[in-house]
Design a protein around this nucleic acid. Structure first.
Lengths: 251, 251
DNA sequence: CTTGACCCTGACGCCACGTCAGCCTCTACC
DNA sequence: GGTAGAGGCTGACGTGGCGTCAGGGTCAAG
């Protein structure tokens, strides 16, 4: 047997010596002993310790780990699901805490670094718009979109919002009613969608439209936006857009 | 003076009686005493306690709070920034933990929970999810995203919504304050954004992230979404994401 | 035989309270 | 005046996952 002393094992596992002694004390990772009472770690012990550390990295307590290691698989699945739930609420809590901290930072009067906004904001818009242009201005869609939206005011944006909301409502109504995405009604909504983009932003071909549809399902934020409106709407709208493109270009 | 006994103060502040006694003992929130040694809380004490609880909600230790309450404003700003940094790394750690848990759950052979869900809705989801898969399933991002989101329920989507809202707020706050998109704070938010996608949807490399940023500025609906949150946010976030990717891959 | 590196056990400290145990005070009712 | 019950008080111990001594044993090198 090629066993190693505790310091080497600790280095190998990237934990402290104290930690290994503690695990030994509570019987979580038992160590062998040599003639003079020194702990010795072999492959088995290291393997077991690594498993323990893996559970620990998931945030389980040592007591929970003891149960996990002795229990059966169904028990594990349940524990994992519970733990995932706990982690999520923990993430929520920390996220809110970070919000509060950021809120506090703003309120502090002496965080007055940089800009006096009045002029700042307008310049800022231009600044980043220009940056964006330099980086991605070569795509025609962006150029045209930027050109048109430049002249839009509050009234126009309100119209756009209202129209978008209307289209999304129409689509989610169809989805809820169980109408197939290949149904004419669904494809009509998709066509409305395309025309809306065409009107407000840039010439939207069927090819461009299906490319957008790809984004709707593959980009998480899009999915989320549509998920907020109705469950499964992103997939539904994508399917309708594709069906519509097929109908228009081939049928 | 209209003072109230400890139980009422505890109810008012939504903490335990023990907590108030502890705060009294360590001199953090000192209580008045009546003739027979009972603690009494007036407006001043309640106000002070609320301030303490606010700091506590941000994750400061009681010792730190003692310093914050006695220190000057510049000290506070520094402490808040440090705390924000700590919270971010804490969020990272928990996010990784959640990743590991989810990874474990998948590996388990008997994850046979599947659908007992009302059939109708589930079938609908599956139907269009499968269609989407056939059309765009070749992209890894979509595959991974679909696989993960399949198991998400209301709680998960709520978490995602909360996290996304938090990040967007953080970004728009910075934009409003006039912080440059190349500033560390802005890049930190961009990194948060990337990690959020990484956690909830699919492995998001810096390259993938910059590709997403392109979409944010060039796609009208994205622009509109961000325009609703804050004027110029799409461009700002894109710039921050690009800067962050540069920092991480080159710096 | 000394030196210094490593090992051992046992004990206390930490943080923000929860949870007794044992006793005191006030109000309401008899 | 007695008594019951609600609420108050202090002091002490427990929690988890170790870090950090204190006091001592073991081992290889010089």
């Amino acid at each position: 047997m090629d066993t190693i002393p505790i310091a080497e094992a600790a280095a190998e596992l990237d934990v402290s010596v104290r930690t290994l002694r503690y695990y030994d004390a509570i019987g979580l990772v038992a160590a062998q002993r040599d003639g003079s009472g020194y702990r010795r770690y072999g492959d088995g012990e290291l393997h077991r310790a690594r498993a323990v550390l893996q559970w620990r990295a998931m945030g389980f307590t040592l007591e929970e780990i003891r149960l996990l290691e002795s229990g059966d698989t169904s028990h594990r699945a349940a524990a994992l699901r519970r733990r995932a739930q706990e982690l999520r609420s923990e993430l929520d809590r920390l996220g809110s805490a970070l919000d509060s901290v950021n809120g506090m930072l703003e309120q502090l009067p002496e965080t007055t670094q940089a800009g006096i906004q009045k002029e700042g904001e307008a310049d800022m818009d231009n600044e980043y718009a220009e940056e964006a242009y330099e980086r991605w201005g070569n795509t025609d869609a962006y150029k045209e979109s930027a050109r048109r939206t430049a002249s839009y005011g509050e009234t126009e944006w309100n119209s756009i919002r209202a129209e978008t909301a209307r289209i999304e409502r129409a689509a989610s109504d169809l989805l809820r009613e169980g109408v197939s995405a290949e149904d004419e009604a669904a494809m009509d909504v998709a066509e409305d969608h395309r025309l809306s983009i065409d009107r407000w932003f840039y010439p939207c071909s069927y090819e461009m439209h299906t490319a957008l549809a790809t984004t709707y399902v593959s980009d998480p934020l899009f999915r989320q936006h549509y998920e907020d409106v109705a469950v499964g709407l992103a997939d539904y709208l994508s399917a309708a857009i594709t069906a519509n493109a097929l109908r228009m270009t081939q049928g």
